[in-house]
């Protein structure tokens, strides 16, 4: 049964990908990319990767589509006929594909428990992480503790990406003299939408907080929570008008928040060094090793969540303000 679901989802993915290739209206391609993301989230759930599915769900529905649409809004939304003969490209692609398929022949079969990948570090993570680190979600313990360096670097990458987008597009605060009631960007014509948004927003923010602080026990964590929080802000801005959003979350505040998140992560590592441990070795932070790990993971996840939220929101601001400038 599970295999059948797996194969069906993969077939749907192929159909969607082919449709994306063929369709020339970029808007429709973005819509299909949204479906692609939904399908891959289902596929991740069916392959036990709940945390990954969670991230894909948070990112794919909200941020990715909105950013694509915003960029389309800033430029043409129709693709021209490609200038090249596609034959050469097709040849290159087919050859590479054939080589890769030949390469898979040596791979262990899908779902094989004896595959080499399951015999090196994974057993240790699964068997000992609860004694060494604590949280029942192995993904959280690996993400925040065993591979803390990796996650620190990726948080910095997201922070840098946020800064680059702001540097490229710039955010102009044009609030001077314009009162909120005349904000043209609010969806005045859609009363139902506005009311429902106001109703749902507290729940979205509450759920983001739940994901942030419950990540040790179930799927979730800083990355997902940050993205969900940013989605909430984007919904607010889209329906109620960006000037109101800018009042609630000013750009300066977000910039400080993004920096603070990275500093919180790095600072936790430094605090461990001050207490006599290695960089990002949380065991020395508390009275016992487990308590220290708990505190360290909490702080680190908070840093990640704050940075991701602030960077994503800044990116959205940059795209959404460009048109008016």
């Amino acid at each position: 049964m599970e295999l059948f679901i797996d194969i069906t989802l993969l077939t749907f993915l192929c159909i969607t990908a082919l449709a994306i290739t063929v369709i020339r209206k970029l808007f429709c391609a973005v819509m299909l990319a949204g479906i692609f993301s939904l399908l891959s989230a289902c596929l991740f759930v069916s392959m036990d990767a709940v945390d990954v599915a969670f991230t894909e769900a948070a990112v794919g529905t909200g941020i990715a589509t909105v950013l694509m649409l915003a960029a389309l809004n800033l430029s043409h939304s129709r693709e021209k006929c490609p200038p090249y003969q596609p034959l050469l490209a097709l040849l290159v692609v087919c050859t590479t594909g054939a080589v890769l398929v030949y390469g898979t022949m040596d791979l262990p079969a899908f779902g094989d428990a004896t595959a080499p990948i399951h015999h090196h570090v994974a057993p240790r993570y699964i068997e000992q992480s609860q004694q060494e680190i604590g949280p029942p979600n192995f993904v959280t313990s690996i993400l925040a503790s065993y591979r803390g360096y990796d996650t620190l670097a990726e948080t910095v990458v997201i922070f840098t990406a946020g800064l680059s987008v702001v540097a490229l597009l710039g955010i102009r605060d044009r609030r001077g003299g314009q009162s909120i009631t005349t904000d043209r960007s609010a969806m005045k014509g859609y009363l139902v939408l506005r009311v429902v948004t106001k109703l749902l927003l507290p729940f979205i923010f509450l759920f983001a907080l739940y994901v942030q602080f419950h990540g040790d026990y179930g799927p979730g964590g800083g990355f997902q929570a940050g993205v969900i929080f940013a989605s909430g802000v984007i919904i607010h801005s889209l329906t109620l008008g960006r000037d109101r959003t800018l009042k609630a979350f000013p750009q300066r505040f977000l910039t400080i928040l993004a920096t603070a998140g990275v500093l919180l992560y790095g600072g936790t590592g430094l605090a461990a060094m001050v207490r006599g441990g290695n960089f990002l070795d949380y065991s020395v932070l508390g009275a016992t090793a487990l308590a220290g790990q708990h505190l360290g993971i909490f702080l680190v996840e908070l840093g990640v969540g704050v940075t991701v939220f602030a960077s994503m929101t800044l990116m959205y601001y940059a795209f959404s303000y460009r048109k008016e400038a």
């Binding site: 759930v45 969670f54 529905t61 909105v66 759920f207 179930g218 799927p219 919904i235 889209l238």
Partner: peptide, 18 residues
């Protein structure tokens, strides 16, 4: 793992709004 379904239920209409 209903959390994943929950987030879709909450945020899915963002695409339409956008």
């Amino acid at each position: 793992f209903l959390d994943i379904a929950l987030i879709y239920a909450l945020v899915n209409f963002l695409g339409t709004i956008a």
